[in-house]
Design a protein around this nucleic acid. Structure first.
Lengths: 144, 144
DNA sequence: GTAACTGCAAAACTTTTGCAACCAG
DNA sequence: CTGGTTGCAAAAGTTTTGCAGTTAC
């Protein structure tokens, strides 16, 4: 299991560090998921998609573990769960402050920088409460 | 269509008319649901809540019919489905343009008039698409 | 070693469907 | 009548759980 391959050793180390910092033990399955999630462009993934990705990789991952991992990653702040309409949950690899554009035709999400989708005014919050997040989703359909 | 002003039947007639206008046959179950949904203050309900309400009324309604009705009502525009985070679907009796405040502690929704939660600027939409809806959810938690 | 994690399958839920019986028009 | 609706139960789908075996440290 611990063949010291020099090829992608440093990259692997980065993911090990990422998981370690998040307080998650860097297991094979978690490493494979983290690698897929956090390499390349940011993703808005689903359970099904993560499972498909796991299958394409060599690492065997059971469905229960997909759920465990996505939930664990979300809990420690590596992912951000987003529900759109009645659709299933997406998991966003971008946990920064930003908003979303949802294409109703393709049923896919795109990021919108927070600066481009701001509220016109500071919202009034009930006494004893504090604003924990502002979720903005722009739904777009085919132009007719 | 023929909303006759009679003291008693007035209210029932209104719901019959409501359903009829929406293109839904005003059955007992649908009338009972419509009455509960659209009497009194606007609601953000769930399948479970609608079922509980049905049980408290005299009208027998099966679970499948709850689903059918909520989906049918949504399809014809009497309700508006809203998904918050990973939570289950809410059905909003207010289909006007407005936004929401979600209390993460009580897990309940409150309406925010559209005028009080507007975007600071007109969003840029990809070519060939048009903006179909803007969903804004302010999440609030306990102040600490 | 041992505590955390995974795989597997079963359980717990949620939502949809098929069809006989029912009811509004 | 007659076709849309409902109730029931079963199916389909999703997410969680329990536990033996495995793995990271």
């Amino acid at each position: 299991m611990n063949a010291r391959s020099k090829k992608r050793g440093d990259k692997r180390e980065a993911f090990v560090a990422l998981l370690h910092t998040a307080g998650l033990r860097p297991t094979q399955q978690r490493l494979a998921l983290a690698k897929w999630l956090f390499s390349g462009c940011p993703k808005h993934t689903t359970v099904a998609e993560a499972r498909a990705a796991a299958r394409k990789s060599h690492t065997h991952v059971s469905l229960a573990t997909i759920y465990n991992m996505l939930n664990d990653f979300s809990r420690v702040g590596l992912l951000r769960p987003i529900a759109i309409g009645g659709e299933h949950l997406f998991f966003d690899t971008n946990t920064d402050n930003h908003q979303h554009l949802f294409d109703e035709e393709k049923r896919c999400l795109t990021d919108i920088p927070a600066a481009l989708a701001r509220l016109a005014r500071e919202p009034r919050i009930p006494a004893g409460k504090r604003l924990t997040r502002v979720d903005i989703v722009l739904h777009v359909g085919v132009d007719k």
